[in-house]
Design a protein around this nucleic acid. Structure first.
Lengths: 347, 347
DNA sequence: CCGCTTCGTCGAAGCGCTTCGACGATCATT
DNA sequence: AATGATCGTCGAAGCGCTTCGACGAAGCGG
């Protein structure tokens, strides 16, 4: 493995000159630069990352802190990670995935942060009250959140624009002629514990429906196929003549579809279904393929990394705050509602 | 940020002594060790990862090289990654995810390897002929593969035991009384291009069926819901009275299920379905939930990391080669075949 | 033509840690 | 009681790089 010394010797310059060629920190004449570059090429020189990190006090490593306690990453999170990694490598950084368990690993996190291995970190799955944020800030590590804490005023974050996303989804259904739309949210516990996306979409749904002069009917659902089936039963009990459903819950929606079919209601002829914050891969699995609000996973990853790097490279701008809407992708699960009452009843 | 010097001063010992306490490289007396530990605690000392890496020539960072060109990671790959990350952090290593695009990024890979940032790497999605392997070996980076190259004799790898997995799946179906079982593999292109899992399962299916005195019927399928529907059509054309299907294709299987329902064949009453190399999360999405051969994702990740670390820490054993079977998880998609011809015909 | 700034380069001093050789002290052996 | 071994500790020499101050050589205005 060639070192800078070898390059310097071959190019007949000092090591510092080689370093300046590499980093561009000081002006170097054309001739010298060319000789150094040639020497590097000849020796197949690669700077040693550790030595660089030690001397410059910048590791050029970014941490992506994600809780991996549960069942791993969904497609949305995966897209986020890949987008972030690609963005990082595009600007010459490495991205380290650190599975910091959501709960007691706070000390572990502190230790990580103090090891000076990360120039900055992206924190995923942020809760409304997230103690990891404080821990990281105390350690003085530049930080970008995915999601938002309750008071995120002083922080950088990238999050989904739930208001806009819900508004668009509702507009799509209303535009098709639907009037009785039920929203299937996350579980009641998630709502009670202050899970941001659940709360924000709830409020947005009420606002959107009210704006159209419609009644906002909402049902919570456990994150499972069974939860989806139960939610559908509850929804039909409450609004027997519903013609459309909007679901926040990537897992429950498969239960909803299954139960709908089991009850002899066809999708989308009898009931239209829109899935929120969903990846195309998952949407395509369903039969029919789901019309969905596609989450901007990889874009979010890219933006988060870019904001972080901009901060690190000192382009001054503290506090990057941005909301991204999901985009409507129409597939086979939505259509106009049945022209008149599908299963008997008045009018 | 406290340094080793600060600790040494406070504990009234030399820096080297502090280092020995930290690394256990040389014996240290009880009293001294205690004083040093106390000083560390008081100063909230954390060793600087870069300095350590530079001086010891070991970064304690492991690379996980995975191609991220396509649609991101499935649940199986995710489980693998989380398992690997957990195992790495358990033995004091960090895991860096590097999205090395499958194709032209070979130079990028070489560069990465030469930067001495990784003590070792795990290579995912290995092809039968994979040039990345050679590139890494030339760079002298310890290596563990997930999957196998054509000739893996000199390499360390962890892979799924496809033979055993297929055998178990077939045994399950045969045990239920099925005789006409169709195997839905990956696409014809995948087979032609020598994709290992597709070839290995194909051969294993032939062997298993023949072993039971049954005829091995096989159909390729594109990796999509549409591909699954087409495959079902082809399967029914070829074996109209099939009673069970075994599918290797996590995506196609949803198309198969949808089409089965559309054709009025109920699962599992008319047709049993087993999904191979599938994660529980995906299996649960289907209606009914899929009986599946669950891929040992996180176990594989753990084993791969442990093998790599054992190699690095010089416990001598080169070449760890291991195959892991998927485990049968019975859910709702398999049952005994219909007692006698479900749709007319002889006997 | 003189003093001044700017340019291009060098040498040396670290960055915070590991590791090697050295050395007094302790301990078991003959 | 003399002789090694072994134990516990220290000082110093790097690991490969960045960065600071210095300095000769140009380039400039007056």
């Amino acid at each position: 493995m060639a070192t800078m010394h070898d390059v310097a010797r071959l190019a007949q310059v000092s090591v510092s000159t080689v370093s300046y060629v590499l980093t561009g920190t000081r002006p170097i004449s054309q001739g010298t630069r060319a000789r150094v570059l040639a020497a590097m090429a000849e020796l197949d020189y690669q700077p040693n990352a550790m030595a660089r990190g030690l001397a410059s006090r910048r590791s050029r490593i970014l941490g992506l802190l994600l809780p991996m306690d549960e069942r791993g990453l969904g497609a949305t999170e995966t897209a986020f990670v890949t987008g972030a990694a690609a963005a990082a490598s595009a600007v010459g950084y490495h991205l380290v995935l650190s599975p910091v368990g959501g709960g007691g690993d706070l000390d572990e996190l502190r230790r990580l942060a103090s090891q000076r291995m990360f120039d900055g970190v992206v924190l995923m799955e942020v809760q409304l009250a997230d103690e990891r944020v404080a821990a990281l800030q105390e350690a003085g590590v530049p930080l970008v959140l995915i999601g938002r804490t309750g008071d995120a005023s002083g922080l950088s974050y990238v999050d989904i624009d739930f208001e806009q996303t819900v508004r668009e989804a509702v507009a799509h259904l209303v535009g098709l002629g639907h009037r009785r739309i039920v929203y299937v949210n996350h579980s009641a516990e998630a709502l009670n514990s202050g899970y941001g996306p659940a709360l924000r979409t709830r409020d947005a749904f009420v606002a959107a429906m009210t704006g159209h002069g419609l009644e906002p009917v909402m049902i919570p659902a456990e994150d499972s196929a069974a939860g989806g089936r139960a939610a559908l039963a509850a929804a039909l009990a409450r609004t027997p003549d519903l013609t459309a459903m909007l679901a926040m819950n990537e897992t429950a929606i498969f239960g909803i579809l299954g139960e709908l079919t089991a009850r002899g209601r066809s999708v989308p002829d009898d009931v239209s279904v829109v899935s929120m914050v969903t990846s195309p891969q998952v949407a395509e699995l369903a039969t029919p393929a789901l019309t969905a609000m596609t989450s901007p996973g990889s874009t979010m990853g890219r933006i988060a990394i870019e904001a972080l790097v901009r901060h690190l490279d000192g382009s001054g701008d503290e506090r990057h705050q941005q909301l991204l809407p999901c985009s409507l992708e129409i597939r086979g699960s939505t259509a106009a509602p049945p022209s008149r009452q599908p299963m008997g009843a008045d009018q």
